[in-house]
């Protein structure tokens, strides 16, 4: 993450020189060489990125068991999806997940960043940052499986409630269809994502000292300063994390796959998990790709809305 970007000056001199560079008289020779250099990349991305993406978008309009040739069925997969209670339920689950998960992805890291930023000693700030970043070391698969154990009937959470004498609150957290979705969403307590924390910390660091001094002169300290100075001035970081979190939640296949298999019943089935399940378990590849198509369209619309929001904001 320490590459240097080209400076404007170097680019300009670069273009001038390329234009009158010796030995490039024949554009066809250069073109041939360029295509040679590009060949491996294009072979890989066409074969293993564009082709499967194209298959997914076309496959959404077919009936396909993955073995026999697909047959064209028009929009019937989409019609089927909106009459399918599991799919409709999955939309509700991802809506709840987004509504709860996004604030959890933004607010606790911001609070932690504020707290670290308010520590006087820079050495202590560095130490605290390092401790939070330590959680990067755990592969995602491992942290999901540890949380699965925390939620088990004989797991850590119930053991803690037992120690505290709150035995009436003990539950089979991910075994109970009424609690499973909440448990899965609230996984990761106290929700201090190290990446988000560092982004906010950097945002706070970049607030000019004059603004902080001016705020202090106006008597804005503590909560007042955070509300009137810090939060507005880290807006660009908030937007970045908002986009990344929306994309992350809508595509989160690993958590339902490893932790709950979408269950119990279909209580933690999200659209992306249902896409996986209809293909891999039920061999309904056309239907699965229709779900992928809709999810893709939704993510694209959200991304475009975000970009629009940005442009109007910077102008």
């Amino acid at each position: 993450m320490a590459w240097s970007l080209p400076t404007p000056g170097s680019q300009i001199s670069d273009i001038k020189k390329v234009n009158r560079r010796p030995g490039s008289g024949n554009p066809w020779t250069t073109r041939l060489i360029a295509y040679g250099f590009l060949l491996p990349t294009f072979a890989f991305v066409i074969g293993f990125s564009y082709y499967p993406a194209f298959r997914a978008l076309i496959g959404a309009f077919t009936n396909w068991d993955g073995f026999n040739p697909p047959t064209w069925v028009g929009l019937s997969n989409f019609v089927q999806a909106f009459q399918d209670p599991i799919f409709l339920g999955s939309l509700w689950h991802v809506a709840v997940w987004t509504a709860v998960g996004i604030p959890l992805a933004l607010i606790p890291p911001f609070i932690a960043a504020e707290m670290i930023f308010h520590v006087k000693s820079l050495r202590a700030q560095y130490l605290y940052r390092t401790i939070f970043v330590l959680s990067f070391v755990l592969p995602t698969v491992v942290s999901i499986l540890i949380w699965q154990y925390i939620y088990e009937p004989s797991g850590v959470l119930n053991a803690l409630l037992h120690v505290l004498g709150l035995t009436s609150l003990e539950h089979s957290w991910i075994g109970n269809p009424h609690l499973a979705l909440g448990a899965v969403i609230l996984m990761g307590f106290p929700w201090i994502n190290a990446f988000n924390l560092l982004i906010y910390y950097a945002g706070l660091q970049s607030i000019p000292q004059e603004i902080l001094d001016a705020a202090q002169m106006d008597g804005a300290t503590g909560w007042d300063r955070i509300r009137s100075v810090d939060i507005p001035l880290v807006r660009s970081q908030t937007k970045l994390l908002l986009i990344l979190s929306i994309i992350g939640v809508s595509q989160n296949l690993l958590v339902p796959l490893l932790m709950t298999s979408g269950g119990p019943g279909t209580s933690t089935t999200t659209p992306v998990f249902y896409m996986y399940q209809t293909a891999i378990q039920y061999d309904q590849y056309g239907y699965s790709m229709a779900i992928a198509f809709m999810l893709f369209a939704a993510v694209m619309v959200l991304a475009i809305l975000n970009i629009r929001f940005f442009q109007s904001d910077t102008n």
């Binding site: 993406a53 496959g59 296949l253 992306v272 896409m275 993510v299």
Partner: peptide, 9 residues
């Protein structure tokens, strides 16, 4: 192209 789109194909 999000990874979930290409996973199954």
């Amino acid at each position: 192209i999000p990874p979930f789109l290409t996973l199954i194909p």
